[in-house]
Design a protein around this nucleic acid. Sequence first.
DNA 1: CGAATAGTGTCTATAAGACATTATACT
DNA 2: AGTATAATGTCTTATAGACACTATTCG
Lengths: 247, 247
Amino acid sequence: MVRFMPDESWSPPIVLIAVDLVILTLRSSALHVLLVERGIAPYQGDQALPGGFLNNAAEDILAAAHRELREEADLDAGHLHLEQLGTYGAPERDPRGRIISVAYLAIAPSLPEPTAGTDAASASWRPVDDILSGHTKLAFDHHQILADGVERARTKLEHSALGTAFCDETFTIADLQQVYEAVWGVQLDPRNFYRKVQAVPGFIVPAGDERRTTKGRPARLFRPGPRTVLHPPLVRPDQQPMNLGVQ
Amino acid sequence: MVRFMPDESWSPPIVLIAVDLVILTLRSSALHVLLVERGIAPYQGDQALPGGFLNNAAEDILAAAHRELREEADLDAGHLHLEQLGTYGAPERDPRGRIISVAYLAIAPSLPEPTAGTDAASASWRPVDDILSGHTKLAFDHHQILADGVERARTKLEHSALGTAFCDETFTIADLQQVYEAVWGVQLDPRNFYRKVQAVPGFIVPAGDERRTTKGRPARLFRPGPRTVLHPPLVRPDQQPMNLGVQ
DNA sequence: CGAATAGTGTCTATAAGACATTATACT
DNA sequence: AGTATAATGTCTTATAGACACTATTCG
């Protein structure tokens, strides 16, 4: 039921809305992204981000993202961090016509291989480094979307409590450090990390005096605190001066 | 020419794509946004962000944003900073039907009142504070879009050279300081600001040894430097701890 | 000269990074 | 005891903010 028309002779362009998901997680200390193999043309057989079309004109976009999260990734959408990443709408990005995609960034704690027998049967976790370095080509403009998603995650680690979204419900400070090291791709000093993380009020709170069994001294467990914005931020060390223009 | 269909019985929802612009500038040391008065329903007579529909299925979204910038704001789109802010697509955001809007953030140097006799005749610069404090209601979800745009500008001032986009081609350090004070809504120490700005390599470069005439000592003029990412960042002072949860 | 604005210097509290030390578990 | 990991402490250097001072124009 669309009616409007500033100019009656003008007819609205037909555009389809899609949703694409950059689902990041940590597996064996490396950043991974969930990819699916495309079953139909175009780009049949290629790897692509999970996603799909808006179901109907009444479906909310964020709701569509959650739905795809369930359908394609078989992930419980309930307590997953999900945020809008950007909209990708270059006219030629999809050979089937004008398809504008709203991309979302999702962060998940460590998870097993996607279960077969669901829509996600063709899905698999892939190391982000392999994709971004060009070893695997992605369909459409998904390489760009993934790069933007990873960059967003990197900067959000500095200023928000996003890091805890990679962890389980309770976690040690060493667990959290692994998240930062994997996403940032750097090594951090455990002592200084410990101190800085604790210095941010409300970032993480002790989860009772419980502890975990390993080889050495047990570690205290924490859970995410009430603050989502970090003060002070955890600054990423030595962001290499990348794009200096002409000198 | 849209053909695809994983399921032939399914028909794509009809969705219209719009573009909305948050155009910020500095006028008499206060942050202003460009608003237009709506001439037709819905929200006829209300203030709204400039914007419009995608012209045709072949038009790039960013190109549409530039076109609206010209048509509705009568601004030379050439050398204006323009970046995607987000996509707003709640099903009920527009009573005419399902209209998904891609919002862009534009930063302009100080400009005179919009010229009459153009599409922008109904346009005017309004102080951002007046709008955000609720004194003026905006059409649709434009209040939210504006709030997001201002927040984006605030954080981008810290980490990017966006501040220079508010200034003319050459500017003094005091000019730049006014930008930061207006956008952040704080007072800054001129001496420390001077030192910190100069400490960021490639942020601003001297524009010859030219100077400007005022009452006191002439000020050196600068122009934007080659760097767009600031190292180190200009940290915003005392970001009030806003959302601390329960203690 | 005095007023006004631009630019520089200095001091101090705080934070960041390197690294030593102590604590608590397991075998 | 020996080893492994967790947690805390110390030192040095860099940075942020407060503020005094010098410099250059105009009337």
